[in-house]
Amino acid sequence: MGSVGSTAYYDCAATTPVDDRVAAEVLRLMTADFGNAGSRTHEVGAAAQAAVTAARTEVARAVGARADEVVFTSGATEADNIAVLGLAAEGERTDRRHVVVTAIEHKAVLEPAQELARRGFDVTVVAPHPDGAVRADDLLDAVRPDTLLVSLMHANNETGVIQPVAEVAAGLAGHEAWLHVDAAQTFGKLDEQLCDRRIDLISVSGHKVFAPQGVGALIARRRGYARVPLQPLTYGGGQERGLRAGTVPMPLVAGLGLAVRFAREERALRVKECLRVRDEVLHGLAPLDPVVNGAASNVLPHVLNLSLPGIDGEAVMVAWRGLLAVSNGSACTSASYSPSHVLTAMGLTTDRIRGALRLSWSHTAPDVDWPEAVRRAQGLR
């Protein structure tokens, strides 16, 4: 894992390669034990249901949740939409029509929030500081008596900067607002910080933790005996406690569960290796005088956002083709070629934003010919 042909893959914040062990199990379940988990009248369906149950338990275990609090989805984007839009009816019923989000959220949160605004909700958007982190006090100061939802990502997908989830959760003690954390970049990596039961909703993405694309989860914790009052976005079948209609993709779900287990068992070794690679990246690109965007501390060990003075980021990515695969922001919006809303919200200059690159790797990252990468980039100045 870690390279495609001769190209070193350093875009793991967009998607990780599937763990070979996970891929083998998913293929086996697709071709040999391929039952529908909803078919309970025969042993093939029962085996499929057992595989889904085991995966649900594994995902829940990672953050100290109950298995029946895990709803499988197609990924974090769907989970985000259910978390945000699924509370709309509750907000209308209780006349709590205020939502707080941050300016650096993934578009999978910002656009559903914009949809709520179109429906008459009041949406407060909290800006980050120049280091890429939102301050807990700024966010909590925006909370009102009629606040329905607070949504805060655990770590930013472009800068890797970790956000003050624990402080926000503590600050919401005694308030009825639901707290949603988009953990697409941190689930399977910083799980201990997600164990706080004041965090009501957690979005999970399989393809950021070496599971297949197309599977994820929404963890919706109970408050006492009461479930989060979510309404489904799709109907027909009643699967996943009525919140996500459609046949559960059992092989993908099982693959997610297995990937989560490996992430838990191998976490310390993975972090150590990612930190080693981080040092190599910074050392290798040092001749280009890179400027790091975002906090140098309190950042994910495998994500680095930087700008190369005097060099356009798009041009660098083209120059590095066949050598090094990187990005300049979220893969979900990169096709638009619009300036990063995250770096813009941080108040960075236009030139710095234009020159930004995101390098993100894994514990399986291949070696890179950094002198060659530097030579190609210097040729653009």
Rank of each mutant, 00 (worst) to 15 (best):
Asp95Gln: 14
Ala88Ser: 11
Asp146Thr: 13
Glu111Tyr: 14
Arg40His: 14
Ala173Trp: 11
Met250Asp: 08
Met1Ser: 15
Leu233Asp: 09
Val326Leu: 06
Ala268Leu: 07
Gly236Lys: 07
Ala245Leu: 03
Arg276Trp: 13
Trp178Lys: 10
Ala220Lys: 01
Pro249Met: 07
Asp95Cys: 05
Val277Glu: 12
Ala169His: 09
Ala217Asn: 02
Arg198Leu: 04
Arg223Tyr: 07
Met250Lys: 06
Ala62Tyr: 07
Val109Trp: 08
Thr73Lys: 02
Glu167Leu: 03
Pro232Ile: 01
Glu280Phe: 01
Pro366His: 09
Leu110Ser: 15
Asp11Cys: 09
Pro366Arg: 11
Gln193Pro: 00
Ala67Tyr: 09
Val228Asn: 00
Ala79Ile: 02
His42Trp: 14
His175Asp: 08
Ile82Leu: 13
Cys332Met: 12
Arg276Pro: 06
Asp131Cys: 08
Leu233Cys: 07
Gly86Phe: 06
Val26Ala: 05
Ala24Pro: 02
Pro290Trp: 05
Pro290Lys: 02
Asp351Phe: 00
Val26Thr: 08
Leu343Lys: 00
Asp351Tyr: 02
Val204Trp: 04
Arg56Cys: 10
Ala48Cys: 04
Ala54Val: 12
Asp95Tyr: 03
Arg381Val: 08
Arg144Leu: 05
His42Ala: 12
Lys272Pro: 00
Met346Pro: 03
Ile202Trp: 00
Val71Cys: 05
Asp289Ser: 12
Ala295Arg: 08
Asp146Ile: 04
Glu78Arg: 07
Val209Glu: 08
Arg28Gln: 12
Arg278Trp: 07
Lys107Met: 09
Ala268Thr: 14
Leu139Tyr: 05
Gln114Glu: 15
Ala47Trp: 00
Gly322Arg: 02
Gln378Asn: 14
Asp196Ile: 05
Val71Met: 00
Asp11Gly: 15
Ala47Met: 04
Thr73Ala: 12
Arg40Ser: 15
Gly329Leu: 02
Leu300Ala: 12
Arg21Asn: 10
Gln239Ala: 14
Leu201Asn: 02
Gln193Met: 00
Lys208Arg: 15
Arg321Cys: 12
Arg270Asn: 04
Ala173Asn: 12
His129Phe: 11
Cys274Tyr: 00
Gly224Trp: 09
Val299Lys: 00
Phe262Glu: 06
Gly255Arg: 02
Trp361Ser: 09
Gly132Arg: 03
Ala103Ser: 14
Ala331Met: 10
Pro366Leu: 09
Met1Lys: 11
Gly236Arg: 03
Asp141Gly: 15
Val248Cys: 10
Ile82Ser: 03
Ala268Gly: 10
Gly216Tyr: 06
Gln239Met: 11
Val291Asp: 10
Arg264Pro: 01
Pro229Tyr: 13
Val99Ile: 12
Ser6Met: 11
Ile104Glu: 03
Leu300Arg: 07
Val165Phe: 09
Ala127Gly: 12
Glu240Pro: 02
Arg261Pro: 01
Lys107Val: 13
Ala46Lys: 12
Pro164Cys: 10
Val374Lys: 04
Arg354Glu: 13
Glu111Arg: 14
Arg358Gln: 15
Thr102Pro: 05
Thr333Phe: 02
Asp369Glu: 11
Glu90Gly: 01
Val109Thr: 12
